[in-house]
Design a protein around this nucleic acid. Sequence first.
DNA 1: GGGTGTGAATGAGTTCACAGCT
DNA 2: AGCTGTGAACTCATTCACACCC
Lengths: 209, 209
Amino acid sequence: MRISDLVVDRLPLYARALANLDSRGRDVVSSQELGDALNVSAAQIRKDFSYFGRFGKQGRGYNVRKLLDELQRILGLNRQWRMALVGAGRLGRAILGYQGFGPQGFRIVEAFDSDPAAIGDSVNGLVIKPTDDLEATLRSKPVDIGIVAVPAEHAQTVIDALVRCGVSAILNYAPIAARVPNGVHLRQIDPVLALQGMTFYLRAEASPK
Amino acid sequence: MRISDLVVDRLPLYARALANLDSRGRDVVSSQELGDALNVSAAQIRKDFSYFGRFGKQGRGYNVRKLLDELQRILGLNRQWRMALVGAGRLGRAILGYQGFGPQGFRIVEAFDSDPAAIGDSVNGLVIKPTDDLEATLRSKPVDIGIVAVPAEHAQTVIDALVRCGVSAILNYAPIAARVPNGVHLRQIDPVLALQGMTFYLRAEASPK
DNA sequence: GGGTGTGAATGAGTTCACAGCT
DNA sequence: AGCTGTGAACTCATTCACACCC
């Protein structure tokens, strides 16, 4: 059975909320309560879970620990994921320094840049390699996920190279509408787009008369 | 008439593509061609535009410059937007240094942090003020948009403070499901969620037998 | 009583397909 | 001939509402 992207994208949200509850010692939760915390309807949550199994107990709710385990298994969060970063400029270095990936099992194991001034630098214990070596490096030591933080004009080229190395999930920070072949997953981090999506409403509301 | 969020979120994408075409000297484009470049169907694009007016010419297509102007007007991109950043740690400083906001009319005009060691630092010509002064500062010199880059545990408090100051659009980098009152717009930048949405598929595909 | 799991009903969003302008 | 603009058809997603179980 085909599960919608929208459903899949909500699962990590649920997992995060459950991890919070778990760390606070909570052991049972209802779809209602979970939904209130996440701005999602209780019915939505129950339906989403129902695609994967029956994890709750009628009259009681869900066991937090058990449900969290299930979600982590479903999402593949119970293992380490190896990532390669391409582009080690300002943005790339901020990504390298970001402390939020590790605890969630995401580890950057290679970093590339094409600027001779950057190559050889050691950031957070990782030595920056020349982008020219990307294909050779990733073919001998594959990664699961690619992170693209190069200027817009080079992003598609880099993405194509990653795909050639068998990377089938890419997190792209460059502001372009990237193309990837079927079977390759792509997510976009694009703050400007997010801002522009909001100014539409500000514009409308800011004119009271 | 009520326009869907999904439509609004595609408009900036169109605007960006048109700006590219314009800068390359192109002056007419069809919905087909625009769609091919963005992985959106031609019908979708025509329908999206139709909510706002009739911008094309049958048999010819759209005038790039004119359509871009219309979209910029609709999205409010033809003016400057004042933003306040809260949280000037690693992430916050990377945001302050990001070169992509300015050219699109987004300017960070205030930066706050609660760490005494950070307060007073000058980053990119902007002096970091204590978060305690946030409300006083923003009440006397309002901003349009707030950017939140504080640790998860403080994010909701900061968001509430911004809302009290009349900020009605917030870009949140903290990994929480934030709550905002009706009429306040919120977008989330959350790379970990994006990654976790992809590992679901990797997990499934990685087990061939 | 309380809360899940789930078909059925509703609602939203996208695509179709074609009339009509250039 | 070519491409827009748009109702109508369709597909996909969410909510409803209730049988069922703890």
